[in-house]
Amino acid sequence: MCRWLAYTGSPVLVEDLLYKPANSLVMQSLHSHLGAEPTNGDGFGVGWYDDHSPVPGLFRSTEPAWNDQNLRELSAHARARVVLAHIRASSGSAVQQTNCHPFRHGPWLWMHNGVLSDFHAYKRDLVLAVDPELFPLIAGSTDSEVLFYLALTFGLEQDPPAAVARAVGFVEAAAARKHVPFPVQMTVCTTDGQRLWAFRYSSEGRSRSLFHSTDVAVLREQYPDNPTLHELSDSARLVVSEPLGDLRGAWREVPESTCVRIEQGREELTPFAPVAAATA
């Protein structure tokens, strides 16, 4: 499907996240170990927040991440405190820039690994449920972007976990009416630049891989000679589709049906479950 990473902490060069780790996201675009496909070459995107504007920067391309010189140039100069990066393996929608993640609305970014199975069968029900003021802003043709705008419709800007739960519940109800048994497969990340949420969920309980980093201060004690760890602040946190390296103890798997919230270096994991459409 896809691979992604989310970083929050002290400002870092984007290339330090995308290129330098042993199993970097750019490396995963060619040789993913845990993805549904080993190659993720249907475009990429990077969203980042600095101190100049609450609206994140966004760079997306249909080029494979491993072959885009503009990405290499930009990432060597862009420094950011929050970064979302995504490499795409299309599940059927067109390879075009508007279909590349992350998606942006105001200060919010959103990216998704997974699929809404048989999306075409109930797509009309989903898009007609999007707030009329938001509907014209849907620029691409992916299930991921529609899920984003459903979450915005259901209150993402006020309460992200509740909004995502309602959006997923709405999708499952719409799919059930079309006799689609297991419609939702997702690891989703969203942020407003201050707080970050990641979700691991699938209708059949067999979700795509997702990991979160452990405490940087603890890792420094375990690996005092590792220079990378000394460049990160104690508040630095990462959520990734698959680990960026093989440091023992550096990564923990996010459990099934879980929401991860990160704010000011504090991390909280809570259960996640869809809210039934009738309740939504």
Rank of each mutant, 00 (worst) to 15 (best):
M1C: 15
R3I: 15
W4G: 12
W4Y: 15
Y7I: 05
T8F: 01
T8W: 07
S10T: 00
S10P: 00
L13K: 00
E15Q: 03
D16E: 08
L18T: 03
K20C: 00
A22K: 15
M27N: 11
L30Y: 14
H31G: 09
S32F: 15
A36G: 14
E37Y: 15
D42A: 14
G45S: 11
V46W: 08
W48R: 05
S53P: 09
V55K: 11
V55Q: 05
V55A: 07
V55L: 15
R60V: 13
W66I: 11
W66V: 14
D68C: 11
D68T: 02
N70D: 08
N70F: 02
E73P: 01
A78Y: 00
A78V: 04
A80N: 00
R81C: 00
R81L: 01
H86Q: 06
G92L: 09
Q97T: 15
C100P: 06
P102C: 14
M111D: 08
M111E: 15
H112A: 10
L116K: 00
L116Q: 06
S117G: 05
S117T: 13
F119H: 00
H120A: 12
R124H: 06
L128R: 11
V130L: 03
P132M: 04
P136R: 03
P136H: 12
P136A: 03
V146F: 10
A151T: 13
A151W: 03
L152P: 07
L152H: 05
T153R: 03
L156V: 06
Q158M: 12
Q158R: 11
Q158P: 01
Q158H: 09
P161N: 11
A163T: 05
V164Y: 09
A165T: 04
V168Y: 07
G169E: 03
V180I: 14
P181R: 12
P181F: 03
V184K: 06
V184L: 07
T187Q: 13
T191L: 03
G193R: 08
R195F: 04
R195V: 13
R195G: 13
A198E: 04
S202V: 09
S203L: 09
S203K: 05
E204D: 15
E204H: 10
G205D: 07
R206V: 05
S207Y: 02
S209D: 11
D215V: 05
A217R: 05
V218M: 02
R220M: 01
E221I: 06
D225N: 13
D225V: 07
P227I: 08
T228L: 07
L232N: 05
R237E: 01
V240F: 09
S241C: 07
P243H: 12
L244M: 15
L244C: 08
L247V: 10
R248M: 14
A250H: 11
P255M: 06
E256F: 05
S257V: 00
T258F: 12
I262A: 08
E268K: 10
E268R: 14
V275T: 12
A276L: 12
A278N: 02
